[in-house]
Design a protein around this nucleic acid. Structure first.
Lengths: 191, 191
DNA sequence: CTTAACTGCATCATCGCTGTTGCGGTTCAT
DNA sequence: ATGAACCGCAACAGCGATGATGCAGTTAAG
């Protein structure tokens, strides 16, 4: 479970942990093989401080993945996936997720160990995602014969593609609109 | 230019180079930070042999990227992108590219140095890709108001997504059909 | 205020990877 | 068949990253 279970840290220690995780995301996104030294520098912290909080590089990575996955789960939850109308939920969730994903791109694309907290969260998110798609299918927004798992994968791919290169030059809602539109209608001529 | 310009190698040396490049793809795909030792072992070659052919790890990576990019360009070319009917060309190119991309996934997703051979090839491929899409647009297969650069990016994303996980369990034509269908019509209900 | 937690700094040992060189044996080209 | 190219093996030096430790100074919590 990484750091989740440790008893509550002192206020400054908590700040350090956050700074380290944020710095790790920033640095590793640009250079996945970056050293602890570089991460420490970016966090405004001594390298030994990182080793005090995270035993291994591995442990740091896992904590990073867990933290990001929790934020992603929250972003989905905030979109009211199983109460709001499907189209509204999809739009809100997409906009929320885009923001989280642009801030934690590296951590979220990390190959998760099958029995880690992050993996469990991602699995739960995928479950909710398919549930929303199912509701959209019931509302005839998605073809009845469509393979929802493929649709979900396409949706994920569109999310990822929207964030490549110039990350946050457009606002999330504009990007979300384009994603949903592409997902539902593709590139073909409109009716 | 990497290794392209060196005078012709002896037959066994050429075999070694191919074995090394193929092993590098295989090993690095699973573990991007793998050591030269691991690559050498996978290639059935001594580590020093790699250093004889490629000065740096960097040089090896670049040669790998160039080699893969050349194969990809050839796969596109074989689809007759500017003579065959757009839909036919798209299908053929997609099927061809899927095969190359499944064999050289790591090398092709490598961030290319702006002034490398690989980058030039990828740029040329993107140019051809957009040309095909333009012809499809002229044939009313794609909406007249569509942003072709976005369409191309979506197409790339669909290609990538099709190969994740169980790589080659389905034949390329089936996958290609689904990709083109999704690209043109999305997940919405069919007419 | 007093104590315990936390941090920075300097240091140390260790490890694995890299890249090079030399040599003896093997394989290809002509 | 002969020479040049190639390969494996062993050894070496160098480098940077890792992770641990002790100590002195600072900060938060009760």
């Amino acid at each position: 479970m990484g750091e989740t279970a440790g008893r509550s840290l002192r206020a400054d220690a908590e700040r350090s942990v956050r700074a380290i995780l944020e710095a790790a995301e920033r640095v590793l996104a640009e250079e996945p093989g970056a050293s602890m030294e570089q991460i420490a520098a970016a966090a405004g912290v001594a390298r030994t401080t990182i080793h005090r909080r995270f035993a291994n590089r591995q442990a740091l990575i896992e904590a990073l993945a867990s933290s990001a996955a929790r934020q992603l789960a929250r972003a989905v939850e905030d979109g009211r996936p199983d109460t709001a109308p499907p189209l509204v939920a999809m739009h809100r969730i997409t906009a929320n997720v885009l923001q989280v994903k642009s801030a934690w791109a590296f951590a979220l694309e990390l190959p998760a160990d099958p029995d880690s907290e992050a993996a469990a969260l991602h699995q739960d998110i995928a479950r909710r995602c398919i549930a929303v798609l199912k509701r959209a299918q019931d509302d005839k927004l998605i073809d009845g014969a469509a393979d929802l798992d493929w649709v979900r994968r396409v949706y994920y791919a569109l999310l990822g593609e929207s964030l490549r290169g110039n990350a946050d030059d457009a606002d999330p809602d504009t990007l979300a609109t384009r994603i949903i539109d592409t997902l539902l209608h593709g590139a073909g001529p409109r009716a």
